[in-house]
Simulated assay, not measured.
Amino acid sequence: MTHPTSPAGTRRTAGHRLQLPAAAVAEMRARLPVVADATVAAILEEVPGYEGALTGSMGENIRNAVQLALGGFLSLASGRRGADPRTPAAPAVEGAYQLGRGEARSGRTTEALLAAYRVGARVSWRQMSTTAVEVGVPAQTLADFAELVFAYIDELSAASVAGHADELATTGRVRQRLLDRVTRQLLQGAPAETVRGSAERAGWEPPTTLTAVLVPEAQLRPVLAGLSTRTLVARDLTELEDHAVLLVPDAHERRRPALLRTLLGRGAVAGPARPWLEVHGSFERVLRARALDILDDTETHLAELVLRADPEALADLRAQALAPLATLRPAAAEKLTDTLRSWLLHHGRREDVAAELFVHPQTVRYRMGQLRELYGDRLDDPAQVLALTIALGADRA
């Protein structure tokens, strides 16, 4: 099998002209298990990332890969071409590719993998060159032999690195799909057990709280740079053109100011922190805020969000509560409306009302007399006062 990212099509060993004597190849092949064991032992001893890795199934996989690689090399050095026009070592290159994928799954880095190849090249060259000298291989042939060894190791290294990269890319895509599922379920308010199962499959450790944040797509990269790497991201939502939703973990209480500083000046809307399985409520809050053109921190706009949650109901309430003023001339109605609003919000403190309206306290007294004539005892009714406060307070929200 040839992989798009593997170096199968550009092998430096494909056109080599070395052909070791049959006796040398036979002797090396006979000693192959010993060379393989020495190579594995050296890797175990010299490459820190492999301590304890050469036992069990992983150890067997590496031993098999070493023997396959050495066997492929001997076939190459003997001059056998086989059916593959590029190199008879194709199975070894494929084995190296799969080894790279396995090492990525095991969590080892390419640095550890390449170090293992360097050690393996040195040990196997020392063992095989000793055998070559013993059977009388000429010096020039030995030099060509050395060149082929290291070109071959380069090919195997490249194949393993390609396998490692492909595995990481595949794993990353799979995990991202799983994380996307968790995000969708949280935004949709899916059942708790469903979301917990999806989070476990994605390897995502749930936080204590999540905070929904609406961010313009153009600002997504800089915002994410300032947030936890565990932040979940939802993009391309049909109801949010040119915006993404972030679910930020544990940005509550004393950590919230840091979140707000990250969002400052970026046209974002931050909802409230909620227990992670209840973040759907935070998401709904930012959607309502966006519909009302509210930006930044929704926690500083709670009164406005409440008062404007149902515009039609608010309009009906205002019409009902202010009905006694409907018969007045517009200018007079406006003055009394302003006075009544200030009187309600200042709890009847005449001096404060006068200061806000830039009028004399006696003017306030006069106007309140007019309002009491219009409203009668209703200004002493708590329910009516509440209705008036909401109706008139909405203008200040």
Results as ranks from 00 to 15, higher is better:
R350F: 14
R350M: 09
E351Y: 12
E351M: 05
D352Y: 12
D352M: 14
D352F: 12
D352L: 15
V353K: 03
V353R: 00
A354S: 01
A354F: 04
A354E: 01
A355C: 01
A355L: 06
E356G: 05
E356H: 13
E356L: 12
L357S: 08
L357Y: 06
L357A: 02
V359M: 12
V359R: 13
V359I: 14
P361Y: 12
P361R: 11
P361N: 07
P361T: 06
T363A: 07
T363F: 03
T363D: 03
T363Q: 03
T363S: 06
V364D: 01
V364H: 04
V364W: 08
R365M: 07
R365E: 09
Y366A: 13
Y366T: 14
Y366H: 14
Y366W: 11
R367I: 01
R367S: 00
M368N: 01
M368D: 01
M368E: 02
M368Q: 02
G369K: 04
G369A: 04
Q370E: 10
Q370H: 08
L371M: 03
L371H: 04
L371T: 02
L371C: 03
L371P: 00
R372L: 06
E373L: 12
E373K: 14
L374M: 02
L374C: 02
L374I: 00
L374K: 04
Y375H: 09
Y375F: 13
Y375P: 04
Y375V: 03
Y375N: 05
G376L: 12
G376R: 07
G376F: 08
G376N: 10
D377R: 15
D377Q: 15
D377G: 15
L379C: 05
L379N: 04
L379Q: 01
D381R: 04
D381H: 04
P382N: 13
P382L: 11
P382Q: 10
P382V: 08
A383C: 07
A383W: 07
A383L: 11
Q384S: 14
V385H: 07
V385F: 11
V385Q: 10
V385Y: 11
V385A: 05
V385R: 11
L386R: 15
L386Q: 13
L386N: 13
L386D: 14
A387S: 12
A387V: 05
A387H: 11
L388I: 05
L388M: 06
L388D: 00
T389I: 05
T389K: 07
I390Q: 15
I390M: 14
I390R: 15
I390C: 10
A391G: 03
A391K: 03
A391C: 06
A391T: 02
L392H: 00
L392R: 00
L392W: 00
L392E: 00
L392K: 00
G393D: 01
G393C: 07
G393I: 00
G393Q: 08
